[in-house]
Design a protein around this nucleic acid. Structure first.
Lengths: 220, 220
DNA sequence: ATTCACATATCTGTATACAATATAATCAGT
DNA sequence: ACTGATTATATTGTATACAGATATGTGAAT
């Protein structure tokens, strides 16, 4: 078990990030610094550092002297973020499949197992486990900027998937797609996994489009 | 003249960012917080917020209990960042050209003039003016995440261009490319400007590749 | 040369104070 | 009752002082 030393600032960052993604914090409302600091039992310094990071991540926005606000969701952002993901992530995963070591493959496999496990038990963790799996496929690319960009896009995506897409038939399809992708990826079949990842992301986008359409024009 | 209220944290962020980009701060050396705070006459609170933002921007990296370090330059990062820009920026500029209002066009035109002006007088500002121009072409797309990603990639690019590419013949070619791009963009010729932007970014990448090659194998 | 102990520098975080700004509440005048 | 001005309150943004933890440097002893 690797011991990772984390500062309070980093822990708070991850915690608030999860709250934003899970929809725990309401959008377009200022996050009260003193209140949150008191709740977490920390001072303002690490809290504001976390806020600054989250603003850079596109999860918060900031108005001078008024504070940090959770960014609201919009269908336009879905289109935007998925367009970016489709441009970047499939190729990144393909390249990563060529560089992945046995250790990398083990990490990805474990992430896949954890995702399946979460899908069967703790649904609240599915989003995070899904992101972990996707990132495990990307990380071996060893391009820091690409990894950071893809992670950011996945984080934003997660807000929409968690809010709008209920499991239903999605789970079994996603499970099959993930498994197939992992197999191709672990085998170093770059072009194959690239195509699969494109379809995978695209099908989630299609689901989101349908869902937004439904919510706009609810069936009688 | 629009009055923009900026916090110290934001000003410091921009200031340190410029120092990193200009190569003023040495890479792989911890930035001494107390020293920098004293020099700027501020406390560490806004300073650390700025650092946190810059880390998220990929300009600094962080080691727990040791502090923030300027990320070192590498040719791999050039390839990575330009690969991402080529995937994203041309299409973004093309889309933006379809949405640009007259006000947007005025902003872009002014940015172009400022860039030419800087090229003739204050060379140290060329990088920033170049980025301003590029961003002016992108902003009308009105996609926040895309804008942020493109800006980040441009910031990183700027470090390399400023360090490795001396003007020489570049200036006049860049000037012509910029002018032609602006014309096509302002005319709403999305596909044309998209192609031009691709070539423009690509030619800078080629210049960087040549330069790196030269620095590795200096001519006798 | 390695190791250990110790001193020092630096980082991380707390608590507190305070000025500037934003928000809410109050009140006066129509 | 409404509007606008005034005051009060809450919140943000920053500074300062301080403490604990970690990292770095130095010198002695082996």
């Amino acid at each position: 078990m690797a011991i990772v030393v984390q500062t309070l600032s980093e822990q708070i960052y991850a915690l608030i990030r999860d709250r934003i993604i899970s929809g725990d914090l309401p959008a377009d409302t200022a996050i009260r610094q003193d209140a949150l600091a008191a709740e977490l039992g920390v001072s303002k310094i690490p809290l504001r550092e976390a806020f600054a990071r989250l603003e850079q991540d596109g999860l918060l926005f900031y108005i001078t002297n008024r504070g940090f606000f959770v960014r609201s969701l919009s269908f336009d952002e879905v289109e935007e973020v998925y367009a970016l993901r489709l441009k970047i992530e499939p190729e990144a995963v393909g390249l990563a499949s060529k560089k992945a070591t046995d250790a990398d493959k083990k990490v990805a496999h474990n992430a896949l197992l954890a995702l399946d496990e979460a899908a069967g038990s703790d649904r609240s963790k599915v989003g995070k486990m899904n992101r972990n799996f996707h990132m495990a496929l990307v990380r071996p690319i060893q391009r820091q900027v690409t990894i950071q960009v893809v992670e950011r896009l996945n984080l934003i995506s997660e807000r929409y998937v968690g809010k709008h897409l209920e499991p239903a038939g999605r789970d079994s399809r996603a499970h099959e797609e993930h498994t197939a992708m992992y197999e191709a990826w672990a085998a170093g079949q770059a072009k194959v996994v690239e195509g699969m990842m494109y379809d995978h992301i695209n099908s989630t986008l299609e689901d989101l489009r349908k869902q937004f359409e439904l919510e706009k024009n609810p069936a009688a």
